[in-house]
């Protein structure tokens, strides 16, 4: 593991009108780290994630990417940032007007200026990696939720990002499909991908994460190794949350 942080978050704050969603967030993501963000609904986990790739503009504070302040990025620099920091959404957000293959090819061709052939080869090998090569020519509407999310991961990977953000990737899935998506994510983690995962899958967090962050009320209340977090939570709010999850 290298020593320079990939992402540093300093006193990040985000308001929607009068509502303070993120009050003060600090954190560091090192290259190759897998960080799982857990916490009750409405604690600001998704907003925090979306501030990392500037889908949401922070109200105050800084997000540094490789030491550079992302809030000062030009439109082009933002594009480059997002190229290098892929994102996977809860509701997949595949483009329904394009086939699975074209979903994967669009950004490499338009952004990376890849040739059609190159993009296609890459897309097919990624589909193979998530086990969906036979779905290359179908439209997203004919995929199951689990398949759609695996395609969405492959689509993010097509841009060769250095880091992936996952926004509750399994929350919209039927229970029997959660496993296939987590398996793909676990594989990615094992291959050394830097990941920030907002999730309710405590098993995954425990097994795969290097660090677990507990968020509540717009703060990160506790950061710890997974085992420590789940077995010896320090903060009373964390204790309460973990016990509720384990007993449910």
């Amino acid at each position: 593991m290298q020593n320079k942080p990939l992402v540093e978050v300093k006193k990040l704050q985000k308001n929607y009108g009068d509502t303070e969603v993120l009050k003060e967030i600090d954190g560091t993501v090192m290259p190759g780290q897998v960080i799982c963000v857990i916490g009750p609904s409405g604690s600001g986990k998704s907003t925090f994630l979306r501030c990392l790739n500037m889908l949401e503009k922070p109200t105050a504070g800084q997000v540094l990417f490789e030491g550079k302040d992302t809030s000062k990025f030009s439109e082009e620099e933002l594009t480059t940032l997002r190229e290098r920091m892929g994102m996977v959404f809860q509701s997949f957000n595949l483009f329904p007007n394009l086939t699975v293959l074209d979903n994967l090819k669009l950004a490499p061709i338009r952004v990376k200026k890849m040739s059609d052939k190159e993009a296609e080869d890459k897309a097919l090998s990624l589909l193979k990696r998530v086990g969906l090569e036979e779905k290359a020519n179908v439209y997203p509407s004919s995929l199951s939720g689990g398949q759609a999310q695996r395609v969405a991961i492959a689509r993010a990977l097509a841009m060769d990002p250095e880091m992936l953000l996952f926004d509750e990737p399994t929350s919209a899935l039927d229970p029997e499909m959660v496993g296939e998506v987590l398996a793909v994510m676990k594989e990615l983690a094992e291959d050394g991908m830097t990941m920030v995962v907002v999730t309710h899958e405590m098993g995954f967090a425990r097994e795969v994460a290097n660090e677990v962050w507990f968020m509540a009320d717009g703060y990160i209340l506790e950061k710890n190794k997974p085992n420590e977090m789940f077995e010896h939570p320090q903060n009373p709010r964390t204790k309460d949350f973990i016990s509720k999850i384990i007993n449910s």
């Binding site: 889908l55 594009t79 997002r82 892929g86 957000n93 483009f95 669009l106 338009r110 952004v111």
Partner: peptide, 20 residues
Amino acid sequence: GQTEASASLGLAKSDTMRFV
């Protein structure tokens, strides 16, 4: 979500409009 997904892939606004 479509616009966001497109932006998250680094697509320019004009491309997002045109292709998505």
